[in-house]
Simulated scan of single mutants.
Amino acid sequence: MDDHRLADLRVYNQHINNPKFKNPEDVVKTMLAMQAQDYAGAKWAIGLRMQKANEALIEQAITDGKILRTHLLRPTWHFVSPYDIRWLLALTRPRIDSINAGMYKKFELDAAILNKGNDVFAKALQGNKQLTRAELVEVLNQNSIPTDDLRFTLLLMHAELDAVICSGARVGKQFTYALLDERAPATPQLSRQEALTKLAEAYFNTRGPATVHDFATWCGLTIADCIIGLENVKQQLASEVIDGKTYWMPNDIEEVSTKHKAYLLPAYDEFAIAYKDREALVNPKYLAQARHVIFDPVVVVDNQVVGNWKRTIKTSKIDISLNLYGKLNKQQLKAVEAAVKSYQKFME
């Protein structure tokens, strides 16, 4: 298996070139967690994995709580299903709290203050209230909890990790927070072994072929934990050794047609962010130009990155500007034009 074949299979397993979903919440449920700090881009990441989608449909699913947005892995923002958020938080919170410990100490956020913050949020949001960041700042200040510098962000993240708050519906362009207990159903608790198994199963079935180090990079857990999860599911997976590295993937992997297909992918799409080694995702001629493949929206042709793109929103239309790293043939250019129209249609 060469790098191009790796990219082919990843694009297929990530449901980019075989979008089968009708509902946005089904995309998120299958992918388990999708990076979402670039909110507009993350909505497109869901949409391009659907048969038919538009931005309004996905925004409505978020408004209705069918998709939640919270700090979940590594830590950064992720979209997650309300049916998965509790066991995922229980699994990842200890690791993230240890990562954040230095920042808690720097901003004098001891256990007593963090717990008081949780209580203040819970009281303010009780009864299906959804408050903006500015409103929550005021609530904390009224309860003698300073919110200068990064303290407010850390207090919010801690409350998210403790399963107290999560995303609410947006008010205009403002994000809100709501009580998790009022947005997500109670679900059975999983043992750590069960949670690691479920995490590994979802990852390798939707991001494979991938290595255990890719898995650890994606979820932010230790290699030891990731090995445990993989060991519990590897009998259900296929594997192949490439350059001394073992790649794991679904057993029922299919042949993939890659010719003359193009996609506009957002920044932080799982296509790139889900792996430690991303060279297979980039046309070998353009490795230098694509060094920011995680952070830039990318143009993908025949399942490898060949350029960047950006949007400009105007009153009556959305303009897409392309920065292609090299020449494409006529069929590839036609595929890129179709990808541009697909995004514009999504935004309509």
Rank of each mutant, 00 (worst) to 15 (best):
A262K: 05
A56C: 14
R86E: 07
F346V: 14
Q14H: 08
G47H: 02
L333H: 01
L140Q: 04
N141I: 11
T258E: 04
P94R: 11
Y268F: 15
A178E: 03
L114M: 01
W218G: 03
A36S: 02
V306W: 03
I223C: 12
A42N: 13
W87T: 14
V137N: 05
L131T: 01
A184P: 09
I85T: 03
Q126A: 14
I228C: 13
C166N: 10
D148M: 07
V233L: 14
Q331F: 07
V233T: 07
N13P: 10
V256A: 07
G172Q: 11
Y268A: 01
D252N: 05
D3E: 10
I46H: 07
K123N: 11
E348G: 04
G41Q: 00
I294S: 02
A178R: 02
I67R: 11
E231S: 05
I227T: 14
C166V: 13
N329G: 03
F204R: 05
D214G: 00
R207Y: 09
Q14A: 00
A124T: 01
M1Y: 07
Y343R: 01
V340F: 02
P19M: 13
G307S: 02
Y39K: 03
P250G: 04
S239W: 00
P284I: 10
Y177A: 00
N232T: 13
M103L: 10
A36Y: 11
R95T: 06
L264R: 08
I228V: 15
T217V: 06
G47Y: 04
M157F: 13
W44T: 04
